[in-house]
C-alpha cells in the first residue's frame, strides 16, 4: 500500500527562540532550520512499515518555501521514495495546509497518511485532524503504536489518563506522538542516493487552492520572564519557606 507522509520545515528544536524587537514575529534570519521532530517520527514510521512489507511506496510532501526541499531530501534519505514540494513563500495556516494535502491525497490515493501531531513553531495540533475531516477519513491522533491489519489500522493513542486504542477503516490519517518510534539517522550513502530520487515541485494554484489566511497575527511578544528565586540550605529551610513565606502548604 502507498503511504503519504507530510513534513514541515521549522526552526531547529535546539535553537533559542527570540521574539523580534518590533513584535511582528519570531526572528528566523540566519537561524538553523530542520524537519519538525514529530514529522521525523512520521517518516520513520512509514519507513518501518515499508521494511515490514506493509507499505510499498512512501511519498513525502512538504508545503513551504524553496528551502523546504531540504527537508524533503532528508525524508528521501531516510527511506521515502519520492517527494512532492508545494512551493509557496506565503504563510500557510492549518486549514489551507489541510486543503493542499487533500488535493495531493485525491491525486495519490494513499491508504495511509502520516503526519506529526503538531509543529513546534505554531504548536497548533490541527492539520492532520482537518485533513481527515476534509477527506472523510478516520483519524488516529497522538499515536504511540500503529498496526495495519488488512483493510483496517489499529492505532494506540496517548490520551489524558493513559492509552486508548481505536480501529480505523483504511484509508486513514495517523498523527504521531513522541513515543511511536525513535527516528534513525540518514547514512551518507543514503543522503547521496536521495539526491537522485524524484522530487516534483508544484504550486498551490496547480492544486486549485487559494491561500487566504483566516487568522492574522497582531503581535508576538516574549513571555513574562520568571525571576530566579533563592537557594535554600536544606530541607528544613525549604519547608519553612513554603509554610511561612510562600504559604502554599
Amino acid at each position: 500500500m502507498k503511504v503519504l507522509v507530510a513534513v514541515k520545515r521549522v526552526i531547529d528544536y535546539n535553537v533559542k527562540v527570540r521574539v523580534k524587537p518590533d513584535n511582528t514575529g519570531v526572528d528566523l534570519a540566519n537561524v538553523k532550520m530542520a524537519m519538525n521532530p514529530f514529522c521525523e517520527i512520521a517518516v520513520e514510521e512509514a519507513v518501518r512499515l515499508k521494511e515490514k512489507g506493509v507499505a510499498t511506496e512512501i511519498v513525502v510532501v512538504s508545503i513551504g518555501p524553496k528551502a523546504a526541499q531540504e527537508q524533503i531530501r532528508t525524508a528521501l534519505a531516510l527511506g521515502a521514495d519520492r517527494g512532492i514540494h508545494i512551493e509557496t513563500e506565503e504563510e500557510v495556516q492549518s486549514l489551507e495546509a489541510a486543503k493542499l494535502l487533500k488535493s495531493v491525497v485525491e491525486k495519490e490515493e494513499p491508504k495511509l497518511v502520516i503526519l506529526g501531531k503538531q509543529s513546534i513553531d505554531s504548536d497548533n495540533n490541527q492539520t492532520g485532524q482537518m485533513l481527515a475531516a476534509l477527506t472523510g477519513m478516520g483519524q488516529g491522533t497522538f499515536a504511540s503504536e500503529v498496526v495495519v491489519d488488512g483493510e483496517k489500522v489499529n492505532v494506540t493513542r496517548e490520551v489524558d489518563g493513559g492509552l486508548m486504542t481505536v480501529s480505523l477503516n483504511l484509508p486513514a490519517v495517523v498523527t504521531t506522538d513522541l513515543r511511536l518510534n525513535e527516528p534513525r539517522y540518514a547514512s551518507l550513502p543514503n543522503i547521496m542516493k536521495a539526491k537522485k530520487k524524484p522530487l516534483e515541485a508544484i504550486s498551490p494554484a496547480d492544486l486549485g487552492v487559494e491561500i487566504a489566511p483566516r487568522l492574522s497575527t497582531l503581535k508576538v511578544e516574549a513571555p513574562a520572564a520568571r525571576q530566579a528565586g533563592i537557594k535554600v540550605a536544606d530541607v528544613a529551610e525549604l519547608v519553612d519557606k513554603l509554610k511561612n513565606e510562600a504559604k502554599v502548604i
Binding site: V17, V26, D121, S122, D123, T217, L218, P223
Partner: peptide, 12 residues
C-alpha cells in the same frame, strides 16, 4: 503561546 511558550501571539 507559540514556540513552546517562548513567544506569545495575539491573533485575530
Amino acid at each position: 503561546p507559540i514556540y513552546a511558550g517562548n513567544a506569545i501571539a495575539t491573533v485575530k
